[in-house]
Simulated assay, not measured.
Amino acid sequence: KKDSKTFREAVKAIFRFSDIQLARAEKNELLRAYADNKKYEKACQKLDEGFEDAFQYTVVGKGHSRLNSTNLIERLNQEIRRREKIIRIFPNIASANRLIGAILIDIHEEWLSSPRKYIQF
């Protein structure tokens, strides 16, 4: 952490881009500048390996613009918990998986036929 403020600011700047091409160019520039420094070697390697995964939200036309919050996921988890509390103790893992799978299939079918714009697929 000592004397790494410029490196940290450069990494943060990469994540402010909304265009993946610009972000790639900036990442490559950062790697050229810091890859030779042993102090930043590991960080540069991690940035290079995980860059494409971290920037999937910038891929035009493939992003999930409707999913702007985690409310759907939280509601899904609440529904699963509500139904599992009724049973309380499952005889084995397979029975728990069957119940949760049935709940997920049911909700997935509801989402597919939903008129709500934010959950249409």
Results as ranks from 00 to 15, higher is better:
residue 105 I to F: 12
residue 13 A to I: 00
residue 42 K to N: 07
residue 107 I to S: 03
residue 99 L to M: 11
residue 60 V to N: 05
residue 29 E to M: 08
residue 9 E to P: 01
residue 111 W to I: 04
residue 12 K to A: 13
residue 105 I to E: 13
residue 37 N to S: 11
residue 84 E to A: 11
residue 49 E to K: 09
residue 73 I to N: 14
residue 58 T to C: 15
residue 85 K to G: 03
residue 59 V to Q: 10
residue 90 F to N: 01
residue 37 N to I: 08
residue 33 A to K: 13
residue 2 K to V: 11
residue 104 L to S: 07
residue 109 E to N: 15
residue 24 R to G: 06
residue 117 K to L: 08
residue 120 Q to E: 11
residue 6 T to Y: 04
residue 100 I to Y: 03
residue 52 E to D: 15
residue 97 N to S: 10
residue 104 L to V: 08
residue 76 L to C: 13
residue 97 N to Y: 14
residue 73 I to R: 05
residue 69 S to G: 11
residue 104 L to M: 13
residue 83 R to Y: 11
residue 66 R to T: 09
residue 38 K to N: 08
residue 9 E to M: 07
residue 116 R to C: 11
residue 57 Y to C: 06
residue 64 H to L: 10
residue 115 P to H: 07
residue 42 K to D: 04
residue 15 F to E: 06
residue 94 A to K: 09
residue 53 D to L: 10
residue 89 I to W: 15
residue 65 S to P: 04
residue 50 G to R: 09
residue 41 E to Y: 06
residue 49 E to S: 06
residue 13 A to P: 01
residue 71 N to K: 11
residue 81 R to S: 12
residue 112 L to S: 05
residue 101 G to L: 02
residue 10 A to F: 01
residue 102 A to Q: 09
residue 24 R to A: 04
residue 121 F to I: 06
residue 14 I to K: 03
residue 22 L to V: 04
residue 70 T to Q: 10
residue 113 S to W: 08
residue 70 T to F: 13
residue 104 L to H: 07
residue 32 R to P: 01
residue 15 F to A: 11
residue 95 S to V: 03
residue 48 D to W: 04
residue 106 D to L: 09
residue 45 Q to E: 15
residue 67 L to R: 13
residue 110 E to T: 08
residue 61 G to I: 02
residue 33 A to N: 07
residue 43 A to Y: 04
residue 118 Y to L: 00
residue 89 I to K: 14
residue 25 A to L: 08
residue 93 I to L: 14
residue 3 D to Y: 12
residue 6 T to N: 13
residue 116 R to H: 15
residue 101 G to D: 05
residue 95 S to I: 01
residue 90 F to K: 02
residue 53 D to H: 10
residue 31 L to S: 00
residue 102 A to L: 09
residue 52 E to C: 02
residue 27 K to M: 15
residue 94 A to C: 06
residue 8 R to H: 10
residue 12 K to F: 10
residue 98 R to V: 03
residue 96 A to H: 02
residue 98 R to Q: 11
residue 84 E to R: 07
residue 40 Y to M: 01
residue 53 D to V: 02
residue 45 Q to L: 13
residue 72 L to Y: 09
residue 92 N to R: 05
residue 63 G to E: 13
residue 101 G to A: 02
residue 121 F to T: 07
residue 21 Q to T: 10
residue 102 A to T: 12
residue 106 D to P: 01
residue 102 A to W: 07
